[in-house]
């Protein structure tokens, strides 16, 4: 059912779009591929889940609980993201980018395994709550879950806020400047280090929201969910052109659509959807590293 798939595609696409933003920002500013970003995507929902468990015990009203979950997750993930930047990115500023790629894998491992080890029953999938208790409504022949509408709305809010920050705030200007030319930005008096840290905070926060989206949509999260999300997010960023934030967003939705159509309409589609993603990644890297979307507005 095409309209059904469309709804799924938009939800999926939102997840990918949110994680892709971080990838594209890190690449645009520092020419780095940061796979640890995937771990942040995973940590967000885990933090949210912990807050939920605490909050349910305290019998908080659901709306407030959800907002608290999101807020704490964003802040904690953002902080971890900044921590990663301080520990692993800054010292390797002058090293060849491939060194950082490997380092980011190491950081990813540390974060992923930490959750596996330290979170109670970390090895198994954890149930993630649906604030709407699986209620849905029907539009024609399409079944839409309340939660899906909610998630799309959340993603929209996140994206609009991002756009606002980029276009209307000083931080946004600084980000654009550093992405275009870090040395030049520095000479204009922009504190590059602080801008980079804040960018990591924003990228991580968005990824955390993306992870929560995944948790709420599928009802469960697992310690290793960050890996495939990272690959998909990065592919989305590449499709949109590394360094181009709006491209990354668009790339996320494109990827979501491709994935849904593949699993829905190709025989044995689900087995091949990752192959398609990787195939796309390879094709883009090899033939069009500037992205399929050739506009370079930021």
């Amino acid at each position: 059912m095409l309209s059904q798939q469309l709804v799924n595609a938009i939800v999926l696409g939102s997840m990918y779009a949110l994680i892709a933003v971080g990838f594209t920002l890190y690449f645009g500013m520092l020419n780095l591929i940061n796979l640890a970003h995937g771990a942040i995507y995973m940590i967000g929902p885990f933090v949210a889940l912990s807050v939920y468990k605490l909050g349910v015990g305290l019998d908080l009203p659901p709306l407030m609980l959800v907002m608290l979950m999101a807020a704490v997750a964003v802040v904690v993930s953002g902080a971890i993201g900044v921590g990663v930047e301080r520990v692993a990115v800054k010292p390797l500023r002058r090293a060849p980018p491939i060194v950082f790629l490997i380092t980011s894998v190491a950081v990813y491992l540390v974060l992923e395994e930490a959750v596996l080890i330290f979170y109670p029953d970390g090895a198994n999938p954890q149930v993630f709550p649906d604030p709407f208790k699986l209620q849905s409504f029907t539009l024609g022949s399409t079944v839409i879950g309340y939660v899906q509408v909610f998630l799309i709305a959340v993603a929209l809010v996140a994206i609009v806020s991002l756009h606002f920050v980029i276009t209307r705030t000083e931080l946004g200007r600084a980000i654009r400047a550093v992405t275009a030319d870090a040395t030049g930005a520095q000479m204009m008096g922009i504190d590059v280090d602080r801008t980079v840290s804040r960018t990591f905070f924003i990228g991580s926060g968005l990824a955390a929201i993306g992870g929560i989206l995944e948790g709420m949509n599928f009802g469960s999260i697992m310690f290793n969910m960050g890996f495939i999300a990272a690959i998909k997010g990065f592919t989305a960023a590449v499709i949109g052109g590394l360094g181009n934030v709006y491209g990354a967003l668009a790339g996320g939705y494109i990827l979501g659509l491709i994935e849904v159509l593949t699993s829905g309409y190709l025989p044995q589609g689900t087995a091949y959807k990752n192959v398609i993603t990787f195939g796309l990644l390879i094709l883009c890297l090899v033939f069009r590293p500037t992205g399929i979307l050739s506009r370079s507005t930021r």
Binding site: R94, A106, L116
Partner: peptide, 28 residues
Amino acid sequence: NEWRLFIFGFILLGVMLARGRRMISSRY
């Protein structure tokens, strides 16, 4: 067993931070 990858991640991180700049001696 559970800690294997965790420790490996730390060691790898340490190695990269320590020797990162002098890694592969080509121009990437």
